[in-house]
């Protein structure tokens, strides 16, 4: 503030400047708060609706007196029982999604680290050509691969199995590219020093490169977990029925994940029960939110640095 005072000839000018500054700040905060409310509104609506009874919600909608708070007439826990009933089976959705998320993330990270290491540190013939081809495939829309992958996966007998969800889109060129960038920033001298100490390539990867590149690997881990949680098109196509392996053993186990399990409720017996479906949305959102609150720093930094839209 003190610096600015130097620029003004008279007190009146200074006062005008200060007033203008205050008005700007008020407008800024007002605008940001308004947009913030717009961002928050769907979440608030989701939480409030989840705690309403279906009857109260329908009455409010029909009478045009929807309230965005809870009171003694509309409050109820009934929705929380519904999401574990009938075609809504959040226990199974969660279990399947966690299995797929953990296994596919492990698979992704292992293959990505090895491939990025090969591209960044090891010299072999054909490396650059191969890398260019892989980069080129990043331009291609995923639907183009999905078209054939659907047929291949059915051919392999992977229809309605976890393998289809974990292995088919598990390796990502983008992650390999992103981790390779980080690996390449590690100075070559370190590698030579490690070589003098008697480290081989893979020992060097394990003991030096992975610890140094940990922030990037954690980012990949988080993005991959979030991607698995939100995956929709592929799981809907390939695994929206009963698990085919378990079915042979006489166990019926639905393969639905969180997203397509939720989507199914639009056409299930809950199609007219809006609060029940909204509670399903809440159940799909809350784990992601908790995850976000714990890893907020990593997620925001990782996404702004890697620049990826999941």
């Amino acid at each position: 503030m003190a610096e600015h005072e130097l620029y003004f000839a008279t007190d009146a000018q200074l006062r005008a400047y200060k007033i203008r500054k205050i008005i700007t700040q008020v407008l800024l905060y007002g605008f940001l708060t308004l947009v913030g409310l717009f961002i928050i509104l769907p979440f608030w609506y989701m939480i409030i609706t989840s705690f309403k009874s279906t009857n109260a919600f329908e009455n409010e909608e029909l009478s045009g007196k929807l309230v965005l708070y809870l009171n003694s007439t509309n409050f109820s826990f009934e929705q929380f029982q519904k999401v574990f009933q009938g075609s809504f089976n959040f226990g199974s959705f969660y279990l399947n999604t966690v299995i797929v998320a953990v296994l596919s993330t492990t698979f992704t990270v292992v293959t990505t680290v090895l491939a990025a290491f090969a591209f960044a540190r090891v010299n072999f013939k054909g490396k650059d050509v191969l890398f260019t081809i892989l980069l080129g495939t990043m331009m291609v829309p995923g639907e183009m691969m999905m078209m054939t992958n659907y047929q291949t996966t059915v051919q392999f007998g992977w229809y309605n199995t976890f393998a289809a969800l974990i292995l088919v889109h598990g390796v990502s060129v983008f992650y390999i590219f992103y981790l390779r960038q980080t690996f390449q920033q590690i100075p070559n001298e370190l590698f030579l020093a490690a070589k003098v100490d008697g480290y081989g390539h893979f020992q060097y990867l394990w003991k030096c490169m992975i610890p140094i590149a940990m922030p990037t690997i954690v980012t990949i881990l988080i993005l991959s977990l979030m991607g698995a949680w939100n995956a929709y098109i592929w799981p809907t196509l390939i695994a929206s029925g009963e698990n085919s392996v378990l079915a042979k053993m006489g166990i019926s186990h639905s393969m639905l994940l969180v997203s397509n399990g939720l989507m199914k409720q639009f056409t299930s017996e809950f199609s007219n029960d809006t609060p029940a479906r909204i509670t399903g949305s809440l159940f799909a959102t809350v784990p992601l939110f908790v995850f976000f609150l714990i890893f907020r720093k990593y997620i925001m930094r990782g996404i702004s640095r890697s620049g990826i839209k999941g």
Partner: peptide, 15 residues
């Protein structure tokens, strides 16, 4: 402002 990024598109579409 970052919150919409960490949500499930299907779930919020439903909302």
């Amino acid at each position: 402002f970052f919150l919409p990024y960490v949500t499930n598109t299907i779930a919020l579409g439903m909302v």
